[in-house]
Design a binder for these strands. Structure first.
Lengths: 152, 152
DNA sequence: CACATGACTTGCAATTTGCAAGTCATGTGT
DNA sequence: ACACATGACTTGCAAATTGCAAGTCATGTG
């Protein structure tokens, strides 16, 4: 983009509907493979996913390498540049958690808000140690539909 | 989006190439009108701009009102919900300022990084008081093209 | 009253997206 | 060894979204 504003530059790299979700999956859910991203519950199409992974790699946010244990599988991982998106992602998380209807429980969002630094430190630790246990639980229950009713 | 993750919800609201730039213009450049956004240097098309303004209003991030001094003009303004995107935007700014080639001088980015809280406080003050002097200077010079080769 | 101006529409053409259905190189069970 | 899985992608389109260029339309201004 031509303005050269840092915000604008950021959007050039990951300013679309999917890129940040891939980064989130890598950062806090411990996802590594193509099929994990595909089944992440967001419904991304495989051609778009392939395209975004290529793009994120080309701009240096992630790296891809063949898995040692299984030659069919490819493991994606955030680069040092990629992992430093954590503060921005955390702020987005907190913002929507406070202002929108999401599946993240309120208390959980408040915890993150109070412990930003601890969360970021833990995120970084997990990245360094390749610890892929999810930092954030799966948010199973839909929050505001009291009955199992689906009136539509 | 179906996952209900706060990040995903955020992207539903402003996860495209333009929305955040409009929010940035409102937040730190003091822009208020359609034509200011159109001439912001990012090159947005007028139909897209109209569409995004409508959308941002419909999700409660901005409000529009006819200007008192000039009945042709419409002033857009961030809502309380909109202005609280400041921390997220600031992190994006800092991230790209550190990791990418932008027009924001390094020292400037470092200042923001060191004084996050002061910057956010000032941003909020400006919003409350409707102070529309730009918080961030225009970043005139292109940083890394030594040749002045662009004779128009 | 004849222009400007600001804020949008409208009409397309060019992209970009989203399925569905392959392909292709491994791995696995018998 | 051979028949199937599996994981990671392509390919082929149709459908939706974008990006110009060119209006429209309600104010303002000299």
């Amino acid at each position: 983009m031509r303005s050269g504003c840092p915000v604008s530059v950021s959007l050039d790299l990951f300013g679309d509907r999917w890129s940040l979700l891939i980064i989130r999956d890598l950062m806090v859910r411990g996802y590594k493979t193509f099929s994990e991203f595909r089944n992440s519950g967001e419904g991304i199409a495989t051609n778009i996913l392939a395209d975004r992974l290529r793009h994120l790699e080309s701009v240096g946010l992630i790296v891809a390498e063949r898995a040692a244990e299984d030659g069919r599988s490819i493991h994606y991982r955030l680069t040092p540049k990629g992992i430093t998106l954590a503060p921005a992602l955390l702020e987005l998380f907190i913002w929507a958690g406070r202002h929108e209807q999401t599946r993240a429980p309120r208390e959980f969002v408040e915890q993150m808000e109070k412990n930003r630094d601890a969360i970021l430190a833990e995120t970084h630790r997990r990245w360094e140690e390749r610890d892929s246990t999810p930092l954030i639980p799966p948010f199973k229950p839909t929050p505001k539909t009291p009955k199992g009713k689906k009136p539509r």
